[in-house]
């Protein structure tokens, strides 16, 4: 049965920039419906790792395999570029920290959501627009703004639009890079709640990079703590946060302001 196989398997993944280590010896399995948080401070290698996992950066060591819909587990860097790019815009999503990196700022919200549909051959304007409106509702953006450009949206709205744009093709795996970074605290809570709800309802798997442990606690089932390119601790999210074992995890947890 399909659910008895992992969706993404990283095996001894490493990335070096010359002699500089981006990340090394990272291995894990991500299962369907699981949300994995990668935490660590700036420079810990978490973004390098995310870029490798999401096929944007070829690792210098190890393999990353993804369970494709029809052909089982496949090494994503052994695929042809065409296959890989198709995967990235249909079965995967990528939510950037800065929404303008993931959106086309000069085209309307509706076109931003519709782009992936058109990329896989949708050619009925009315249907594309209906789907876009539906997704605007799901990410709580006023449907009256479907023809407005994201330039006129607030940061929180842009981020929600970026999420809709990614989810419209029904991906199974979504990568998120600091999805709530740079947003007001009140906006963050709403966004996290929305992401959590969507991930749960759609049964998505996700890899979320964040330096914010509260985000990790709210969104993820499992967590990897990274430091200097290596994973220093891994486990259930609540376990790592409530009973951290590694010196560095303890430091991270101890650094949270108590409210």
């Amino acid at each position: 049965m399909a659910l008895d196989e992992p969706l993404l398997v990283a095996d001894d993944v490493g990335k070096r920039y010359g002699t500089q280590v981006g990340c090394e010896q990272v291995s894990f399995e991500l299962w369907p419906g699981e949300v994995l948080a990668i935490v660590g401070e700036s420079g810990s290698g978490k973004t390098t790792l995310l870029n490798c996992l999401s096929a944007q950066l070829e690792p210098s060591a190890g393999t990353i395999r993804y369970r494709t819909r029809h052909e089982g587990l496949r090494d994503i860097f052994a695929m042809s570029e065409a296959e890989r790019r198709l995967l990235m815009r249909t079965d995967w999503g990528f939510v950037h920290q800065n929404p303008s990196d993931g959106l086309r700022m000069a085209v309307s919200a509706g076109a931003n959501i519709g782009e992936r549909l058109m990329a896989v051959g949708a050619r009925h304007y009315g249907d594309i627009r209906e789907t876009a409106l539906d997704w605007m509702g799901r990410v709580e953006i006023d449907q009256g703004r479907v023809d407005h450009r994201p330039e006129t949206f607030s940061g929180g709205m842009r981020q929600r639009l970026q999420i809709a744009r990614n989810l419209v093709t029904g991906p199974r795996l979504v990568f998120m890079d600091e999805p709530t970074g740079g947003l007001d605290v009140s906006v963050q809570a709403r966004l996290l709640d929305l992401i959590g709800g969507l991930v749960g309802d759609l049964g998505l798997s996700a890899v979320v990079v964040t330096h914010d442990l509260a985000v990790a606690r709210l969104l993820s089932h499992r967590m990897m703590v990274m430091r200097r390119g290596r994973v220093v601790e891994t486990g259930l999210t609540d376990q790592v946060l409530d009973d951290p074992q590694h010196e560095y995890s303890q430091l991270l947890v101890a650094s949270i302001l108590q409210s």
């Binding site: 259930l236 609540d238 409530d242 009973d243």
Partner: peptide, 9 residues
């Protein structure tokens, strides 16, 4: 209790 629930190691 937390250890049984795997909240603590």
């Amino acid at each position: 209790l937390r250890m049984i629930y795997a909240n603590y190691r």
